[in-house]
């Protein structure tokens, strides 16, 4: 989720169409910021239309595969203080830990568990990772219009060194703003997740989607993430993105 959000707040500068890798690099560059903070509302609508809502604060330092993220839940009361630390690495999968204040325990989210759902949402733990554009191979599949925006339709495949639950993804990049409009992730030809970005606003010169809707295909549920109070380049310290800090600040 973060990779999609961070990579897509781009300026609206016009860039000449280039090959697929250059497009993706441009998307990443335009969204680049030293840090990011927002408050998010996560709404899960299950197959029986039951809605559960949670709020979190999101802090990120660094970017493009070398970033660190802390997600801290703030509501409802039962989950307040639960935090997730994601330490991304450019050359391999991220490290993830969860902190549960009621138990005063941290737990490592094992790599094997990255494909499992992120606490009942339609995101998986892997979707919380931010990966550098260079970790994928790309090709242009054509052009399509999504949400009224003309897009390049690209195919991305993780390089062999990179492990992922997805064998490939289809990415629709808006030609006008170099932002993601839609991503469909596949495993062996089977569509697993569909992510749609909307409510783009230009914040601190970066085009930023304020709403993301993700659906795990076949589960008949969807998760909507709305972001508020989003800021880039906020003063955050590296020391805030450690397990010790996670324990200390809860």
């Amino acid at each position: 989720m973060n990779r999609f959000l961070a990579a897509f707040s781009l300026t609206a500068a016009l860039v000449r169409a280039q090959d697929a890798r250059h497009i993706m690099q441009e998307v990443q560059d335009r969204a680049r910021a030293n840090s990011q903070r927002y408050e998010g509302t996560l709404k899960v609508i299950d197959s029986k239309n039951k809605i559960s809502e949670k709020r979190w604060t999101y802090d990120r330092i660094g970017s493009a595969g070398g970033s660190k993220v802390v997600i801290r839940f703030s509501a409802p009361a039962e989950v307040k203080g639960v935090a997730l630390l994601v330490v991304n690495h450019p050359e391999r999968s991220s490290d993830q830990w969860m902190w549960t204040p009621a138990l005063q325990r941290d737990r490592r989210i094992a790599f094997q568990d990255r494909s499992t759902r992120f606490f009942g949402t339609d995101f998986s733990f892997e979707d919380l990772e931010e990966r550098d554009a260079s970790q994928y191979d790309y090709k242009i599949l054509g052009e399509e219009t999504v949400n009224g925006a003309l897009c390049w339709k690209l195919e991305s495949r993780p390089k062999k060194s990179k492990s992922s639950q997805y064998t490939h993804a289809h990415i629709w990049v808006g030609k006008a703003r170099y932002v993601f409009e839609k991503i469909e992730s596949f495993h062996d030809g089977k569509l697993i997740r569909r992510l749609i970005y909307s409510d783009y606003q230009k914040i601190q010169n970066i085009w930023t989607p304020l709403t993301m809707e993700i659906e795990e295909v076949g589960r008949k549920s969807k998760t909507i993430l709305n972001t508020e109070k989003l800021q880039y380049n906020v003063p955050l310290k590296d020391g805030q993105f450690t397990l010790q800090a996670l324990r200390r600040e809860s």
Binding site: D46, K54, V82, T100, R117, G120
Partner: peptide, 25 residues
């Protein structure tokens, strides 16, 4: 990944809220 907690595949409604489940001991 190892154990099937519910009868119908893909239905996670058997846990009211997975995050609350983990957050509350």
């Amino acid at each position: 990944s190892l154990r099937q907690y519910e009868f119908e595949e893909g239905d996670e409604s058997f846990i009211d809220d997975p995050l609350v489940f983990l957050a509350q001991p």
